[in-house]
Design a protein around this nucleic acid. Structure first.
Length: 342
DNA sequence: AATTCGACCAACCGCGACCGA
DNA sequence: ATCGGTCGCGGTTGGTCGAAT
């Protein structure tokens, strides 16, 4: 049995409100109130509208002291911080911003603020799922998948033991998952789809040991280059000075977002200009991890220098890598830059 | 000048929560 | 405790407008 309709949809007007309708509704509510019953209101007012539509029109547009557009930096900051803390609870967020409606904030977030936060990544560069991910069954001809990020997370020793690979800034060894390989060459990550991985395996092994991989040889092996923008990288560091992913000219972090660890306590978030934006986050406590984990699904890789070292914050980061960043299926590592691609 | 595309935003829809009978 | 009506929320849709081609 379906849900009973809130009104007779055949006899209600839909679409944009006319000034006359606005005037009728506004005048009535200002004189008599809503009466606590939106469903009955349209008939009292003399409008051929659904009660829900009246409610929405009043709350989002007609009621006094409504502000539209022109969000201030302070409002931006509040929205971002609250979104990080509580997610898309627009009504709660709106309650903190006098004159703003949940709908307005939601629209503002979806059309502008989200892009601003994500570092103004052009659509062509913003890949929801930039790299093919498991589960794809490996073929028997492929080598067994390496155990990436074992409990100790000894990345470098693992690389050296398993591959005896040189670590070059322009080349990322195939720390991959058996069904796919990746290379970092300048600003491109090369990857294949699953169908090409079998034939690519030989090439990968050969070229990786020689460390003479060229763009053309990779392309001829069926690899598709994907441009990697700095903004695609989630950057976990301590401050701009120690951030390995810097704009060399301005010495500012170029990552989409940067998470700061401050004496193991409160973590802050920097916007793309390096401005600190307060955000409750604690790696070791897991606070806020869900939010950043979601971000990891949106970005292309992460930059986390202290992942391969000891210190506070590491366990939480490891946990996040295990649970969200492909579950240990990282595609590759640029050891010199400290970039882990997944 | 015409067309296409994307950004923006008002409005709609459906679902869960809430409340009173 | 149950049920039906209503409210409120968040996701989605669709129209409009300006910029780009």
């Amino acid at each position: 049995m379906g849900r009973a309709p809130c009104c007779d949809k055949a006899n209600v007007k839909k679409g944009p409100w006319s000034p006359e309708e606005d005037s009728k509704l506004k005048d009535y509510i200002e004189r008599f109130g809503t009466g606590g019953n939106w469903i009955a209101l349209p008939q009292k007012v003399g409008l051929k509208r659904c009660g829900k539509s009246c409610r929405l029109r009043w709350l989002n547009y007609l009621r006094p002291n409504i502000k539209h557009g022109g969000f201030s930096d302070e409002e931006d900051r509040i929205i971002i911080n609250l979104f990080i803390t509580i997610g898309s609870r627009w009504s709660i967020i709106a309650a903190q911003l006098p004159g703003r409606t949940d709908n307005d904030i939601k629209n503002y977030w979806n059309t502008k603020l989200k892009k601003k936060l994500m570092g103004l990544i052009p659509n062509s560069h913003h890949r929801k799922q930039p790299v093919p991910r498991p589960p794809q069954p490996r073929t028997s001809s492929l080598p067994p998948p390496p155990m990436l990020f074992p409990s100790s997370y000894e990345i470098q020793s693992y690389q050296q033991q398993q591959h005896q690979l040189p670590l070059l800034s322009t080349y990322s060894p195939p720390l991959s998952k058996g069904w796919n390989f990746s290379y970092l060459n300048n600003n491109y990550l090369f990857t294949t789809d699953n169908s090409a991985s079998a034939s690519a395996t030989t090439t990968t092994t050969t070229t990786s040991s020689s460390a003479t991989t060229t763009v053309s040889s990779i392309l001829s092996s069926g690899y598709e280059p994907l441009p990697v923008k700095d903004q695609d990288i989630l950057d976990f560091g301590s401050d701009p000075g120690s951030c390995s992913n810097l704009d060399q000219q301005h010495q500012q972090p170029q990552a989409t977002t940067m998470i700061k660890q401050e004496e193991g306590e409160l973590q802050g978030q920097r916007d793309n200009n390096g401005q600190m934006m307060d955000a409750g986050f604690d790696f070791d406590q897991g606070i806020g991890i869900g939010h950043w984990a979601e971000k990891m699904n949106d970005c292309f890789g992460i930059d986390c220098d202290y992942l391969s070292s000891s210190g506070s914050g590491r366990s939480g980061m490891n946990w996040m890598m295990d649970h969200y960043a492909g579950g240990g299926n990282q595609l590759g590592v640029d050891q010199e830059k400290g970039l882990y691609y997944f």
